[in-house]
Computed example of a mutant assay.
Amino acid sequence: MVITGVADRVPERVSGLVYVDAVVPQDGDSCWSLVTERERAWYLDGAGRTGYSSAPLPFFDGRATPHPLASLLQAVRLRGDLSAIDRKDYVYATGWPTPSPFEPVYRRLLADSSWRVHAVHSGHNVMRDAPEELLTILVGSTG
């Protein structure tokens, strides 16, 4: 959500974007609107203690901390689209133990020639599960 908003506001300062097993929002989308009921249940189940934050999802690193619930609900407001950004990469993790909430994004971007799409055998934490492969993608996206 954040990198999309930044790229929309200051595209002249962004030369490329890399989304790692994530949503790629369009105007008016929120994380909440782009994930499945299963993820929404995780967010709400974890919000029981304070009502303000969602506990780390069950497959997150043990060092993860609660996430502000409002940031999952807030819609991004975009003035344009990402066409001004020259390099756009999407990294899709194929090793989810359950169906990935990001498969619709992956399929949509596979059909869009302005994106380079990479399928990585990893769980959602690609940095932990496939660091070398992710590094190769990141280095390749810079030039």
Rank of each mutant, 00 (worst) to 15 (best):
L135I: 04
A130M: 08
E132V: 10
V14A: 02
G143I: 00
L72S: 03
G143F: 08
P97K: 00
L110I: 09
R79C: 04
P11A: 03
T36C: 11
R116T: 15
V126M: 10
F102L: 02
D112Y: 08
D8M: 02
A130N: 05
L69W: 06
W96Q: 05
P11K: 05
I3F: 11
Y106K: 03
E132C: 00
Q74T: 15
P58E: 09
P104A: 05
F59G: 07
V14N: 03
Y52R: 15
G123D: 12
E37H: 07
L135A: 15
S100I: 08
F102Q: 07
D27A: 09
V20F: 04
G62M: 00
P97L: 00
L82R: 02
T98R: 07
A93Q: 06
E133I: 02
M1G: 13
D81E: 08
W42E: 03
Y90N: 09
A47M: 07
A7Q: 07
Y92I: 06
T36V: 11
E37C: 01
R77I: 06
E39D: 12
V76K: 03
R87V: 15
I85N: 04
R13G: 02
P99E: 08
E133C: 00
Y90H: 10
T36Y: 03
T136K: 14
R79S: 12
S15H: 12
L78M: 15
P56F: 02
L57Y: 13
A75V: 05
T142E: 13
S30I: 09
L44G: 00
R13F: 04
D86L: 12
F102R: 02
V105C: 01
P56V: 06
E39Q: 13
L135V: 08
S100R: 09
S54N: 01
A41E: 14
G28Y: 12
L78E: 06
P25F: 10
I3V: 15
G143S: 11
A130V: 08
F59I: 14
D29T: 09
D112S: 10
L78D: 07
C31P: 00
A84G: 00
G143M: 02
A93F: 04
G123Q: 09
Y43V: 07
S15D: 14
G16D: 04
Y90T: 08
D89P: 01
S54E: 00
S53P: 00
G28S: 10
H67M: 06
S114R: 13
A22E: 14
R79D: 13
D27V: 06
A119F: 05
A22M: 14
R40G: 01
G46C: 11
H118V: 05
H67I: 01
A64H: 11
H67K: 05
E37Q: 14
E133N: 04
H124W: 06
R49Y: 10
P66G: 01
Y92L: 08
P99D: 12
H118P: 05
A93M: 05
V2Q: 13
